[in-house]
């Protein structure tokens, strides 16, 4: 039986549909009950429901053989995983955003920029690669609030439609990364269940 780490939140429904197409009839049940584990013995899958940022951890350690997670999370945490398939859903962009008054030309003149983000590693790398000194404030949520509240000059966050940014008086300044959901596979599981995983990837590619 292969264990799949399923992401809570917006990626859950399309991920569940993907496995429904592979014969897992009631994966949706995970979204409804309180149980965090669900088995589909006939299809040969077990599912665990975890926060998206924990998916790579479960899969790297082999606690799950497979997982569904966004590339934004993958690039932030850089765990050693296979990513054999991009899934076409969960599209979003990781962007630098800030108040309209703060233009890019102003950045370099500030002695230090303060940047709020849930992606401290990617944010730091982006600014340092451009020769800009920054201070990263790592937040767990509501990142859009940080500039209004005076916590940070800029934010680095994922946007889907951009409406949340606009509602909080922010504009997109630059895109750091285009992201979509990926299938990730533990390296040992890939070797040990090679034929089954390859067949599953083919089925998903066709779906």
């Amino acid at each position: 039986m292969l264990c799949v780490a399923m992401p809570k939140g917006r990626l859950f429904r399309p991920a569940a549909e993907l496995f429904a197409a592979l014969g897992c009839r009631s994966v949706q049940a995970l979204a409804e009950g309180r149980r965090l584990i669900h088995e589909e013995p006939e299809a040969g899958f077990r599912f665990v429901l975890v926060k998206p940022i924990d998916v790579p951890t479960y899969v790297e350690y082999g606690a799950a053989d497979l997982g569904i997670v966004g590339q934004d999370v993958l690039r932030e945490f850089e765990r050693d995983l296979y990513e054999p398939l991009r899934l076409g859903f969960g599209g979003c962009r990781l962007v630098v955003a800030g108040p309209p008054a703060l233009r890019a030309t102003d950045w370099a003149r500030r002695p230090i920029l303060r940047v709020a983000s849930k992606y401290p590693r990617l944010a730091r790398q982006y600014f340092l690669d451009r020769g800009l000194s920054i201070e990263i404030v790592t937040l767990a949520g509501s990142v859009e609030l940080a500039p209004q509240a005076g916590l940070a000059d800029l934010i680095v966050d994922v946007v889907d439609s951009g409406r949340t940014l606009a509602a909080n008086g922010l504009v997109e300044i630059e895109t750091i990364l285009l992201s979509q959901a990926c299938l990730v596979v533990n390296r040992a599981s890939h070797k040990l269940h090679l034929a089954r995983i390859n067949a599953m990837i083919e089925q998903m590619r066709k779906a």
Partner: peptide
């Protein structure tokens, strides 16, 4: 080398 139950070489 890999073995079941351990995600690392």
């Amino acid at each position: 080398g890999f073995c079941p139950g351990l995600g690392f070489p």
